[in-house]
Design a protein around this nucleic acid. Structure first.
Lengths: 161, 161
DNA sequence: CCGATTAGTTAATCTGCATAAAAATTCTGC
DNA sequence: GCAGAATTTTTATGCAGATTAACTAATCGG
């Protein structure tokens, strides 16, 4: 009986696993990382579907918001703020610029770098997007009270700050 | 004045944006989705580096934990629990099986499906992995007290349940 | 027994993301 | 002021993860 070719199963077949997808984990439920991943996935997907109406991805919305708060910043700064590599900032900005939402301006004494700004259209759209994002947030976290939302935000800030 | 070829910048160049990466956002800080994404990224990357010592990815660890809790489950069930598509479950299981951590057993009356089980080695390794994951969790959320961790977990469960 | 359905697999494709190298410009030491 | 190092952006390449479509094998319903 020790001549099994494959590793020996460690438990006997209990016939039917429950087909529901909710109680399939258990030891994982104690892990913050696991809960974070699942919650983030849900909220993110909700936002993706909402931004889809504008043909935008979350990172592009984030980029617009960062540019608004830091007009004239350089691409390398934007990349760092988005936690992406510079080459990705290029394609992201290309998209935003080709859609007329942001502009690269050669204005510094240093002619290697650009200053990045929102266009008027970008500013206008961003105002809408902020509302959309805020609402998406509320909807995706409908199970929470306003108080709990505030608690959650503060705890999350503590984690990544 | 209306003859600009590119979209008009909406703000004047304020010379130097602060190079720090911390205070680059602001309206984003009110969004739960944004905070979730950043916190999740941090905790996830921490776990990735810890599991790297075992040449495992987080999804593989999660799969092992799910198999342990649901011995004999079918691949389709596993895919649903992991929120991945069946073809991905195939490559994931191939890896686990080739490393001798899990086994597919044709045992059901239905000879199309497999029952999936942990091997002895898989059970042993999983015990270690759980400790590693729990510790990684603690380290990545070192800014929180035990109480705050419990609060955070409960809030996150409310969001994705 | 035969068509329709289901579980698993394979293959082709796509995407996001990272790394490396290239091009243009600025800075530094002498 | 000039050669070489450093910096900002861009281009090119490659890779891991994921999705889709098509294929095989087995079950189910009449």
């Amino acid at each position: 009986m020790s001549s099994k070719s494959s590793p020996t199963p460690a438990a006997a077949p209990p016939a039917a696993p429950q087909p529901a997808d909710s109680p399939l984990d258990s030891s994982l439920d104690e892990l913050i990382g696991y809960a974070l991943r699942r919650a983030q996935l849900k909220v993110f997907q909700h936002l993706v579907s909402r931004l889809g109406a504008f043909d935008l991805r979350p990172a592009q919305f984030t980029a617009l918001a960062i540019i608004e708060q830091n007009p004239g910043l350089m691409q390398a700064d934007l990349a760092r703020a988005l936690a992406i590599e510079p080459p990705q900032a290029v394609v992201l900005l290309n998209k935003l610029e080709s859609r007329g939402l942001a502009v690269r301006v050669r204005c510094k004494p240093d002619k290697r770098s650009y200053g990045i700004f929102l266009s008027k259209a970008g500013e206008t759209l961003l105002r809408q997007l902020k509302e959309v994002a805020a609402q998406s947030d509320l909807e995706a976290t409908a199970a929470l009270s306003a108080e709990e939302r505030q608690q959650l935000i503060e705890l999350l800030h503590k984690v990544y700050r």
